[in-house]
Amino acid sequence: MAEPVLTASGLARTYPPARAGGEEVAALAGIDLQIMSGELVSIIGPSGCGKSTLLNLLAGLDEPTAGSVALGSGSPLLGSVAYMPQADLLMPWRTVLDNAAVGPQLRGLSIGEARERARAELLRFGLDGFADAWPSQISGGMRQRTALLRTFLTDCDVMLLDEPFGALDALTRQDMQERLVELWAAEGKSILFVTHDVEEALFLGDRVVRMTPRPGRIADEVAVDLPRPRAAGVTDLEPRFIELKRALEEPLRAEEARTP
C-alpha cells in the first residue's frame, strides 16, 4: 500500500502588515495535504491563491505561522525535496552538463562524478549533443529540459514543480508534459505539480486539488479516473476528460469573476 511521503497539516502562513498599523495578510490557512508515494498530484487555482507560498513551505524555504510539514522519511525538508520553478534559473556560467550536475555536486560528489551522472541522462532528456553548450545558446524548451534534469538529479523522492512549463509555447509544453509523465512512471517519484491550466492539471494528475484565494485554502479535490498512458490529442477528447474539465473550470471561472 502506498505510504504518505509528504504530509502538511493545519498549515497557515500569515505575513506581517506591509506598513505600520496595516493589516496582516493571511496567505494560507488550514491546509491539509498528503502526497502518497509514487503519486502525481496537480494543484490548481487562480493567481494569488497562495500556491507559491505553499510550495515554499513544503520545500522548507519558509516557516509556517501554524501547522507543520513532515516528510515520511523524517528528513529535514531542505535538501530532501526537489523544487523546480517556472524560471529555469540555469547558471549562465555553467554549461548544460554542469548545470544539470549541480545537485550531485552539492551533495559532495566530485565534479567528475557529478558530470558522469548527468551525462548518463542527457539522451533521455533530449539534451544529447548539448552537454557543452552555454544556457544562452539553447532554446527555452531545451533550457527547461536542462532544469528538469537538474531537478531529477537531486535524487529527491518528492518533487515540487511550480508552473514549470508555464512560459513555454504549446508544442514544447506538450513535449515537456509527456517527458515528465514518462520520467515519473519510470522512476516512481512523488510529484506535486502546480499549474493554472486545467487541462495540464488533468492530463498529468492522479488527482487535482483546487485552491481558492484570500486566504489560500483547499476548496476540493477531484480524482482523475482517466486511464494511463494518456496521450495529448487523445485523452483530452474523451468525454470523461471534458466532464472533469467542466467540473473544475466552473468554480474557477466564478472565482475569477469575483476577483476585484
Binding site: 524555504l61 547558471m91 545537485g103
Partner: peptide, 14 residues
Amino acid sequence: ADPALLRLLRTMGA
C-alpha cells in the same frame, strides 16, 4: 546573484 537561484540551491541542501 539572482535571489531565486540562491533559494533553489538552498532547496538542494547547499
